[in-house]
Each structure stands twice: as structure tokens, then as C-alpha cells.
């Protein structure tokens, strides 16, 4: 007790994740998924059961006889994450276990395309689970194929010439339309904001949905060291809006609050030029993306009032 620094308690965000998220997983350098796991582990500790459909994470956690996460993990077929999570939550309730949280952890393909039916079913039944969609905006695990969450203008191996021409599917809006108790968007660049949202989700019963923006270095064609910078730019340009929806009210999260004013937003070219997948983008498509951003903010303003 000599040095005053030693008396300061460790912040829970990295300290509680120590020993739960283990090093040496098989993720690519610069992968956002272990960053998100550290936030999850600091909130729930090892008292969580992750239900993971086919996605990058099922590879990252490693193969038998080891796994890089000290928590319960169930690997399930692609379309069934929300259905299995509902079943596990019901089984825990029957056994009287209340301190363990069931979390469905799926990619954008397993949520917006293939898992949409079971997700919608679980949301409608208001099952007591947390569903986290980490959004790397394509099927990265199988080789960068287009998904419905791929943004407009992005190159993928299945949209090789012009890029994707349709705008991104907004799953958070779909979940708000289901009338579930809690819906939030989060970003890998703001782990403390994500932590706050998970803490809030932990205190609520019922179906909770979090849409997490997660830039993928090999899939988006950028240097692995810029993962956090690109995720932050997505928020600063207004392309990715951080908000939470609870009790029928939409609240803008602190990192996104300054960007309600369009003049404070950075130009979206700054976000696009860092990524190789937008190399062939045309000025018309940039204009279309800009219009899409404006309409998203209009919707936010309408929901807030």
C-alpha cells in the first residue's frame, strides 16, 4: 500500500475479461471479434452461454479439444441460432439457473439472410435471450460473398464489377418493428458504449437485440491496424448511427450525439477511401450513399421526437 496507484481499482472492462478470453485464437490479425468478446466477458464473466451458428467465430474459437473462450459455447447450424438459444434459455429456467445469460452470437449472414426466420420467431415470442449480430458486411468466413447487410457500392467476390447496387438491410429497424423490449446499435470502436448497452441489456428481461458494427481487414481490403480507426470513421461520418431503443423511446448514444448536426459530420469519402472494397465506386453511388445517410438521420429525428 505504498504507491497510491496500486489502490486504484482496475477498470472492469479489460480487467474482468482476463482469463476468460484467451490468447492464441485463430482469428486474422486485426479481427474485431476478440475485442467484442472482451467487452462481453467484462459484463457477464464466464456466466454466459454463447450460441454460435456457422460464421467466422465458429472458426476463431478453435477446434476440439480446445477453445479460446472460458464460457459455454454451442455451435449450431446456420439458420438456428435464435431457436437453439430460446431452447437453452427455457432449459435453464426449468433447472432454476438464473445467473447465466444465453447469448446468440451470429454474423450478418446468419442474421439478416439465413437466420432471419428463427430470429423473427424468437423476437415475436419475446424469449429471454440477448441476440448480438456482429456485422462485418459480407460472408467473410467463406470468401467475401455479398450478404444483404453489405453496403451500397462495396466490392465482394459475388459483386465483382460494379459492386453491390442495393442499400444495406437495416436489421435494427426490423427488430424495433417487432416491438421487442430492447434494441441497440453498437460499434467496435466504442467499447465503453457497448459495455454500457450490455449492462443495460443485462438488467432487462425479454428479447434484446444488439447490432454491432465490426470492420473486417481482409474482407474490406484495409491494413489490419486500421480496424478501430475505420469503425470510428463510420460513426464520425454518420454512416453508422449509435442509438438504443427501450420502452418505445429511441435515445441517441453519446458518441453519435454530435453528428445529429450535419455540418459536424466528416465527408463520407474519408471513410470510403481507406477501404479497397470501395476502390471502384462511382460519384453517383457516393451520392446515393449520402442520400441514404440523410434518410437514416431523418428517421432518427422522427423517432426521437
Amino acid at each position: 500500500m505504498s504507491a497510491p496507484q496500486t489502490q486504484r481499482p482496475l477498470p472492469p472492462l479489460p480487467a474482468k475479461a482476463r482469463g476468460i478470453v484467451l490468447p492464441g485464437d485463430t482469428s486474422c490479425p486485426g479481427c474485431p471479434i476478440p475485442i467484442a468478446f472482451k467487452v462481453l466477458a467484462s459484463v457477464f464473466g464466464d456466466k454466459m452461454i454463447l450460441v454460435i451458428p456457422a460464421c467466422c467465430t465458429s472458426v476463431i474459437l478453435g477446434t476440439y479439444p480446445g477453445q479460446s473462450l472460458k464460457a459455454g459455447v454451442i455451435h449450431v447450424p446456420f439458420a438456428s441460432a435464435a431457436a437453439v438459444a430460446s431452447g437453452v434459455a427455457a432449459a435453464l429456467k426449468m433447472r432454476g439457473i438464473e445467473d447465466v445469460q444465453v447469448i446468440a452470437w451470429a454474423g450478418d449472414g446468419g442474421t439478416a439472410d439465413i437466420g432471419m426466420a428463427t430470429l423473427s420467431g424468437a423476437a415475436e415470442r419475446n424469449e429471454d435471450i440477448i441476440y448480438i449480430m456482429y456485422d462485418n458486411e459480407a460472408y467473410m468466413n467463406t470468401g467475401i460473398q455479398r450478404s444483404s447487410a453489405t453496403p451500397q457500392g462495396a466490392w465482394t467476390t459475388t459483386t465483382p464489377v460494379l459492386g453491390k447496387l442495393e442499400p444495406k438491410k437495416d436489421v435494427a429497424k426490423i427488430m424495433i418493428a417487432h416491438g421487442v423490449p430492447y434494441v441497440a446499435t453498437a460499434s467496435i470502436a466504442y467499447p465503453h458504449d457497448f459495455y454500457q448497452k450490455l449492462m443495460k441489456a443485462k438488467s432487462i428481461k425479454g428479447f434484446r437485440f444488439i447490432h454491432l458494427h465490426a470492420p473486417c481487414p481482409p474482407g474490406w481490403r484495409f491494413d489490419p491496424m486500421y480496424t478501430v480507426r475505420i469503425a470510428r470513421l463510420a460513426v464520425e461520418t454518420g454512416l453508422w448511427i449509435l442509438y438504443e431503443y427501450h420502452n418505445g423511446k429511441l435515445m441517441l448514444s453519446p458518441p453519435s450525439q454530435p453528428y445529429l448536426d450535419p455540418s459536424k459530420r466528416k465527408p463520407i469519402e474519408e471513410y470510403l477511401k481507406l477501404q479497397g472494397r470501395f476502390r471502384k465506386i462511382t460519384p453517383e453511388l457516393i451520392k446515393a450513399i449520402q442520400q441514404h445517410v440523410e434518410s437514416n438521420w431523418e428517421w432518427i429525428k422522427k423517432m426521437m421526437s
Partner: peptide
């Protein structure tokens, strides 16, 4: 029971990458 256990370095010594 074919259950996996949490271990460090499930992908080998990734420092070699």
C-alpha cells in the same frame, strides 16, 4: 463426452504469424 475445454493457444503459437 466430446466437450472442448478452454485452452490458451488453440491456434498454436500465433506469434509465428
Amino acid at each position: 463426452v466430446p466437450l472442448t475445454k478452454p485452452v490458451e493457444g488453440v491456434g498454436g503459437k500465433t506469434g509465428l504469424w
